[in-house]
């Protein structure tokens, strides 16, 4: 067997491969889900267990490590709280409560920990999410890089939004400008920080967006995801393969801020593979697509756009096709490996 590399954790093809090899393949089917619910049989944003009254208990878990732990636009605490809320939402759940598990490196400043927790509490508080349990551990200096926060999100769904239900004819909607978080973190983390920049993470909980949409258009929403690690490219490719469809998006329509676009261009990075932490991607029925965008606009998400549509797949492969700005077509692959800048 080989060794684990950073590529295995970057949310792309390699991660799917290692999960398949290490986990999915080695578990019998009955262990992968609770009857009538959703589990790792079709890995989605969260898992679900039927409550017996038609509703579902939605649960998600995620470990957050980010370097640097304070970045333009937020910190690891805000990220952990927002991320777990968003994962519950993307399955159609209304987030109710959360648990956290914090592991800190010996010597970590109390002040910083307090600030991180303040940010985390603030997000939970403003979204009405209770923090009902947790764990706290300290690791000897050098055995952990500063801090890792794991959050569990719990919620209730009237009905589930499961990405494999995406159907030909559905429209794809992006709620806001993409790649903001990825570009900001990349700049801060890899030391490719421009002298001056407007790069800023978009990390935020999306409850104010998703709950009203689910209440009004729930049955018309066939898929929902937040394009975190692996970005839009990863989300759309997972959708296409989970639903056995082909997705065609129009590059011109994808919301992207100039500063992010220009930063990506400078380093030769592809914004389609960079993370967002405050954007939702939805697959909705065609007849309500425009209405949904208007509703999003009225909720303050003024950059929302219909970026493409779902089609019957041609041949065997579930592809994502991009209509380029100049009018050509290319295939959008899921991201591969560690993201590095290029000069060639």
């Amino acid at each position: 067997m080989g060794k684990i590399t950073l590529a295995h954790g970057s949310g792309g093809k390699e991660m799917n491969e290692i999960l398949e090899k290490m986990i999915f393949k080695r578990l019998p089917d009955w262990m992968k889900l609770v009857d009538g619910g959703l589990g790792i049989d079709f890995p989605d944003d969260a898992a679900a267990i039927p409550l017996g009254d038609g509703r579902y208990f939605v649960v998600t878990i995620d470990s957050y490590t980010v370097d640097p732990i304070f970045f333009p636009g937020g910190n690891i605490g805000k990220l952990a709280a927002s991320g777990t809320i968003n994962d519950v939402l993307m399955l159609g759940g209304n987030p109710v409560a959360a648990l956290d598990s914090i592991v800190v490196e010996e010597g970590f400043e109390e002040d910083l920990l307090k600030e991180i927790l303040d940010s985390m509490f603030e997000v939970f508080k403003s979204n009405g999410v209770k923090l009902i349990g947790g764990d706290f551990k300290v690791m000897p200096r050098g055995q952990l890089d500063k801090i890792v926060i794991t959050t569990v999100g719990l919620g209730i769904a009237e009905h589930l939004i499961v990405d494999k239900n995406l159907k030909p004819g559905d429209k794809v909607i992006v709620s806001g400008k993409i790649a903001e978080h990825g570009a900001a973190i990349y700049a801060a983390q890899k030391g490719f920080m421009p002298e001056e920049s407007e790069l800023r993470s978009d990390v935020k909980p999306l409850k104010d967006l998703i709950i009203p949409l689910v209440e009004k258009y729930g049955k018309y929403i066939s898929a929902a995801s937040d394009p975190t690690r692996g970005g839009l490219a990863m989300v759309l490719n997972s959708w296409a393969s989970a639903s056995g469809t082909m997705i065609v998006i129009d590059e011109e329509k994808v919301p992207l801020r100039d500063a992010v676009k220009n930063y990506c261009e400078l380093l030769g990075l592809d914004p389609f593979v960079l993370a967002s932490e405050g954007v939702a991607v939805l697959g909705v029925k065609e007849k309500v697509a425009k209405e949904v965008v208007e509703e999003m606009n009225s909720l303050g998400y003024t950059d929302a756009e219909i970026v493409g549509e779902v089609k019957e797949k041609e041949g065997d492969a579930s592809l994502v096709i991009v209509k380029t700005r100049i009018g050509g077509y290319r295939i959008l692959e899921p991201p591969l490996g560690e993201i590095v800048p290029r000069i060639c």
Binding site: T324, R325, I326, G328, R330
Partner: peptide, 24 residues
């Protein structure tokens, strides 16, 4: 050529091929 999908805009028989242009 590939990123902007130019080959999809060109007529059949007109081929764009890559020579040794990658230093890696």
């Amino acid at each position: 050529t590939t990123h902007h999908g130019l080959r999809s805009l060109l007529p059949e028989g007109l081929e764009l091929v890559a020579g040794p242009g990658c230093p890696v």
